[in-house]
Write a protein that binds this DNA or RNA. Structure first.
Length: 785
DNA sequence: CCACATAATCTTTTT
DNA sequence: GATTATGTGG
């Protein structure tokens, strides 16, 4: 245990020659890590492959700068992408320097640091420092209002579409003023054919300013505007931050890149102490605006930058590493690293083919049970899927077998409807100009204030140039709105007044309870529970209780609200219980597990067809990096699965193994014999493929009978999942009338057995199976008897 | 204004 | 298939 040192951290840090903890923190670093830690002056790029001790280097470097007396903690800017990463950094730096975690004021996410800076200078971009941070949902509602007000067809031009456009510009650091002519040209063209994307962006920004609000993108963007327009402010921060540390640099977007560059661009080049750590092979957020290019061109941006490669992997076995490394070489645009390890041998990466998603879940669950009965922990096991919808089959199976599991990265606590409603109440009480919050709760619970009334209020507010609440106060004095709606509005306003006047007398948690109670919000869910038997209502009420608890951890409402939008994320709780982890590949980045399952490696699913369609080769390469991330999460064993059939959007589709499976090196892969495997679809069996070894008769038979080659070749050409002809030629209703099925007919289905058709529409059949019960199936999957 | 039926949509995710 | 957004009848 480290001795507790009560002196302020700065004092200890500045002791220089004899730090309290000596230099023990440097022990055990390999030469490259040590170099990356100790080269603290001048720009530095650390290319850190998976499992090479990236976080350790970053935290040790932080400690080293302090120990060398080069800077105070307040002079080091250290940014990460996620709160989780920031928290981990904070803890580990704290352990190294034996300091209280509060002593690191500028360690945080890009967004939280930018928000902090923006609060100091908000007035420079026309905001008050009390600005609210809108989340995606608020943003969309606002955009929807704007589209409506501008009389644009919301169906053709959705708020989401516009939101993507605007986010894209913000990610690139573009304010409306900086848009190139032609940007947004295609969005909602007016009568002269001129796109209105740009002008809508401007309107949106004006609305945000009027609401004293920012969206996530604005946090960085406003920082940029301030830095560019007020050199003195920029200079202040440039001087303040003597050292900059950046985690996951491959995930930075242009705005973040510009932000960093401005902050690092000190007059004296020898003092540009920017250290970025990243791995171009793990860049998986391109779809969110990340530019791999940032990391690829670091050396050009900072001439004389030192580059350190961390290539020694401490995580995985030789085979796992070999498989992942080989796979990633198929990518063109990469800086190139060669990971190596001392861990010789181990188990080869297992590739298994199974019949369908249920079989996949069944086989994997069985493997997990074996693992556990051999004395290992569920905690050691992760199932990593490409898309969250693939999780359900596993959840169902785990529940059926009574296997404990946890889903990581599901819907976030603070994005739940009930939590957002509760926040809206608090926001409304706190500010009489928070139109978005006011509008959200004006009829929740139902007060008899409908869309028409709200619309009236909005037009009035716009006309008067005041907030929605102010307009409502005016209008309820007139006859413009009558009857039930007017009474309800008046009562609602009185409620708000009463809550506001209660603010000074109550603790913020008591206030929240009072509001939720008196507004009828809690009662609404209680009713839903009793009356409708809404299965989610209970959970919602629990969440509200949790919310009060979370609030209690802050001293004031202000303190809580400040953190809620950016920093606070609920602990994914109870890491002490022994549970299987179930998450997406994206969610798994930065984690490691002894045993990793990678299901769903089929063309169309992974690589995702949508990715390919939208981003072509770049999309494919990002998918491949995702595969790389997946495999490299495994320490001891990695198992890849693919299915022959998968249900997508409720339709059964035949599927073929992912091309990534073909790209795995045979010497590191074992094709598992008890589940069967069919070879790669190039017809070239010399790679990882081992041909049929299946024991399941129906499985082998069905594939043997399959007109495989033509079907798969067609598939390869079209790159579409529609050619579902692998099992049997499908009788599309229009094309092949002779093969149509009639109600009452007896049929056989490979999976469900014998049954009788109860109804038929198009190529979809409802069948009453003798053993499996009623199912909907495609006619291509059944045989006439 | 609300409850209910039908139609459209369907990655990945942080902040 | 399942959720969500919209449209229609009461």
């Amino acid at each position: 245990m480290t001795e507790i040192d009560s002196r302020p951290i700065s004092e200890r840090a500045m002791m220089g020659t004899r730090p309290v903890h000596h230099n023990t923190y440097l022990d055990g670093l390999n030469p490259e890590q040590s170099e990356a830690v100790q080269a603290i002056d001048g720009p530095l790029l650390v290319l850190a492959g998976a499992g090479t001790g990236k976080t350790r280097v970053l935290t040790t470097r932080f400690a080293h700068i302090l120990a060398q007396g080069k800077a105070f903690p307040s002079q080091i800017l250290c940014v990460t992408f996620t709160n989780k990463a920031a928290r981990e950094m904070r803890e580990r730096v704290g352990e190294l320097i034996g300091a209280e975690v509060e002593g690191l004021p500028w360690l945080g996410t890009f967004h939280s640091v930018a928000a902090k800076i923006l609060r100091f200078h908000a007035e420079l971009v026309g905001l008050k420092s009390s600005f609210t941070i809108l989340d995606t949902d608020d943003q969309l509602r606002l955009l929807k209002q704007i589209l409506k007000a501008e009389d644009i067809d919301e169906k053709r031009w959705t708020p989401r579409h516009l939101g993507h456009l605007i986010d894209g510009w913000k990610n690139k650091g573009k304010t409306p003023e900086k848009l190139a002519t032609g940007d947004g040209f295609g969005f909602a063209p007016d009568s002269s054919g001129m796109g209105r994307g740009g002008s809508l962006y401007r309107i949106y920004q004006d609305r945000l300013r009027a609401l004293n609000a920012v969206d996530f993108g604005d946090l960085l963007l406003h920082n940029l505007t301030i830095f560019q327009n007020y050199p003195d402010v920029l200079a202040k921060y440039q001087n303040k931050f003597k050292y900059l540390l950046v985690d996951e640099y491959q995930d930075t977007n242009v705005a973040q890149y510009l932000w960093l560059r401005l902050l690092a661009q000190r007059a004296d080049k020898s003092e540009q102490n920017l250290c970025v750590v990243g791995d171009d092979d793990q860049s998986i957020y391109g779809w969110r605006g990340a530019e791999v290019d940032n990391i690829l061109r670091f050396e050009k941006d900072f001439p004389g930058a030192k580059v350190v490669r961390l290539e020694r992997n401490y995580r995985s076995t030789e085979h796992i590493l070999g498989a992942a490394s080989c796979l990633i070489t198929a990518n063109q645009d990469r800086l190139g690293k060669t990971l190596w390890t001392d861990e010789e041998g181990g188990e080869k990466v297992v590739v298994s083919g199974v019949w369908d998603g249920d079989a996949e879940a069944r086989v994997i669950s069985g493997e997990i049970e074996n693992w556990q009965s051999n004395g290992r922990l569920y905690n050691d096991v992760a199932v990593l899927v490409r898309a969250s919808r693939q999780m359900r089959a596993f959840e169902e199976r785990f529940i059926a077998l009574g296997l404990p599991y946890r889903v990581i990265g599901g819907p976030r606590f603070f994005e739940r409807m009930e939590i957002r409603d509760a926040h809206a109440y608090l926001r409304t009480v706190r500010s009489d100009t928070d139109d978005l919050a006011f509008e959200r709760i004006i009829n929740v619970p139902k007060r008899g204030i409908g869309a028409v009334t709200v619309q009236k209020l909005q037009t009035a507010a716009r006309a008067m140039g005041v907030s929605l609440e102010a307009a409502t106060r005016q209008i309820t004095k007139t006859d413009e709105i009558r009857g039930k709606a007017r009474t309800a509005l008046r009562a609602f306003l009185l409620d708000i007044d009463r809550w506001r006047s209660a603010v000074p007398d109550l603790r913020h948690t008591e206030l929240a309870e009072k509001i939720l109670d008196e507004s009828g919000y809690t009662a609404m869910w209680q009713n839903a529970n009793m009356h409708n038997g809404d299965p989610k209502a209970d959970g919602r009420l629990d969440n509200l209780k949790e919310l009060i608890q979370a609030m209690g951890e802050f001293d004031t409402l202000e303190g809580y609200m400040d953190h809620v939008s950016l920093v606070l994320d609920m602990e994914t709780g109870g890491a002490d219980d022994d549970k299987i982890s179930l998450m997406t590949l994206h969610g798994a980045k930065g984690l490691e597990f002894p045993l990793v399952f990678l299901p769903g490696w089929e063309e169309g699913s992974f690589p995702s067809q949508k990715s390919l369609d939208e981003s072509g080769t770049a999309g494919l390469e990002e998918e491949r990096r995702l595969a790389y991330v997946g495999i490299t999460r495994a320490r001891e064993r990695a198992e890849i699965y693919f299915t022959a059939n998968r249900q997508i959007y409720g339709q059964w589709q035949a599927s073929i193994p992912s091309r990534f499976i073909d790209e795995l090196p045979p010497e590191h892969v074992e094709v598992k014999s008890d589940t069967g495997y069919f070879g790669n679809h190039n017809g070239n069996m010399g790679n990882a493929a081992g041909g049929y070894t299946g024991v399941s008769e129906s499985f082998v038979e069905s594939f043997d009978k399959t007109p495989r080659s033509p079907g798969w070749q067609r598939f390869q050409k079209n790159k579409t999942i529609e050619g579902t002809a692998t099992r049997k030629p499908i009788s599309h209703s229009g094309r092949d009338k002779g093969n149509s099925f009639k109600v009452g007919e007896r049929i056989f289905h490979q999976k469900f057995g014998y049954g009788r058709i109860t109804s038929a529409s198009g190529n979809k059949l409802d069948v009453a199976f003798e053993k499996a019960g009623n199912k909907k199936v495609l006619d291509g999957f059944v045989e006439k008897l």
